[in-house]
Design a protein around this nucleic acid. Structure first.
Lengths: 235, 235
DNA sequence: CGGTACGTTGAGTCATATCAACCATAGTGG
DNA sequence: CCACTATGGTTGATATGACTCAACGTACCG
């Protein structure tokens, strides 16, 4: 964790990539810019551990984090990712519970840290901000509920296709049609909720079926419609 | 849906079974008591459908609801239950999205309906209430995340034991040690995320192992420690 | 150069889903 | 009052998706 020299201003982030802090009034923004810390975190850094108390929330200025729970046998279950503009750790702060997941950097990240007290103060001072935050947590709850349905009812094959499409929508493709997020096979398995070997086998099936192309960890989406058909995309 | 004659006062509910509305100040309580409607709903009633917009939230004064999503093939996945004191529909109202689940009465219920506008107004007027509501949604998010881990990593056997213990904690036992909530085998399967036949087989295994006793839909918890062992209860 | 982490493939196993038949119960209508 | 039907529960047989275990390949790194 290194202090980051070129500290981003919350106003800019709010306008360029839509953080929730754009709801704040100018005085609050000033206070926030003063109170927050901004640091660069290398890949592999753990921001907080499942079960621990968190001291505040992180706003992602750049890079990618994964949030996961750890099962009995040590196997990770990835719950979500956080990228530019996303807020992390707020669930624990607002519910006043220990963190329900571990947050780990998977692509070098510039993060702004906002102390819990500060966040709560802003909620209490600014009803619009409170509404926005509530909206965010309720949306995340909606996503989680959808996830429950999928894991409970879809096959691994369907879910993997689903996840590839989700990653495409969330992180986008580069000019060559390659997914803009790089994951290990194990991480893919930990999203889908399956064994690493199963992911490997299914990916190479998708490849023979001309749905994707593989080059190490780079995944190129070749036939999106085909993936949608497999995923039983309906909503 | 029949109008309910003996309308409960929000102050009483707040003190006797801890609704979130106990955060409100006296004027807000008065307004709420005036604005809300209270009705009796019979078993089987659907309060709102997945995908539809909801006009407000329901506060459960009595009875039990199930909230579920419906899969492609029509199979339900139960997300949670709501009983005395619980709030239902708030996710949709606060996220300004259509409902992500269907709410159905499974034990005759007395429900107070609070219009969306009213709820939002209270959030904006009362920061403490906003915090409480946010806390509630974040806690539900924590539960959902735990659910994701369980479904993804535990076996059906483990999850069924888990669910029985959960139902025991949430709804309690009567004097004979029998679960205070009555579910069909299919509903149990729709919580666990498995086939009805699997639930039946596992329940009768649990019965031969002297962990539970069965009498129609009544389930008696005989050996809680044993169930905990099966469920891999650790947190 | 050896070490470590990741990726791949094959073979065998098992938990769970699926399909099918059958029983019990209760409500319905002629 | 009795078929009739619907719903839920149970059991058995069978199929198979997915996991596990094991071996081996590959690549990067100090």
């Amino acid at each position: 964790m290194k202090p980051f020299t070129d500290i981003p201003c919350c106003t800019n982030c709010g306008t360029t990539f839509n953080t929730i802090f754009k709801e704040l009034n100018p005085e609050q923004i000033d206070l926030l810019n003063y109170e927050k810390g901004c640091t660069l975190h290398k890949r592999g850094t753990v921001l907080y551990q499942e079960g621990s108390r968190v001291a505040g929330v992180y706003c992602v200025n750049n890079g990618i984090l994964k949030l996961f729970k750890t099962g009995l046998d040590g196997k990770e279950q990835i719950l979500r990712f956080a990228k530019k503009g996303d807020l992390v750790g707020y669930r624990s702060v607002l519910s006043e519970e220990p963190a329900c997941s571990t947050a780990k950097v998977i692509e070098d990240a510039v993060l702004c840290f906002i102390p819990a007290k500060m966040l709560v103060q802003m909620v209490k001072e600014n009803p619009e901000f409170a509404m926005k935050l509530m909206r965010m947590s309720c949306q995340e709850l909606g996503t989680a509920n959808k996830y429950i349905l999928d894991i409970a009812q879809k096959t691994v094959r369907e879910r993997l296709a689903d996840i590839l499409l989700f990653l495409k929508n969330d992180f986008g493709l580069d000019n060559d049609g390659i997914l803009q997020i790089t994951l290990t096979r194990e991480e893919l398995a930990n999203i889908v909720g399956t064994a690493t070997e199963s992911v490997i086998r299914l990916l190479s099936e998708f490849k023979s079926d001309k749905l994707i192309e593989l080059n190490g960890r780079k995944i190129k989406i070749v036939n999106e419609k085909g993936l949608e058909r497999i995923a039983n995309f309906y909503k």
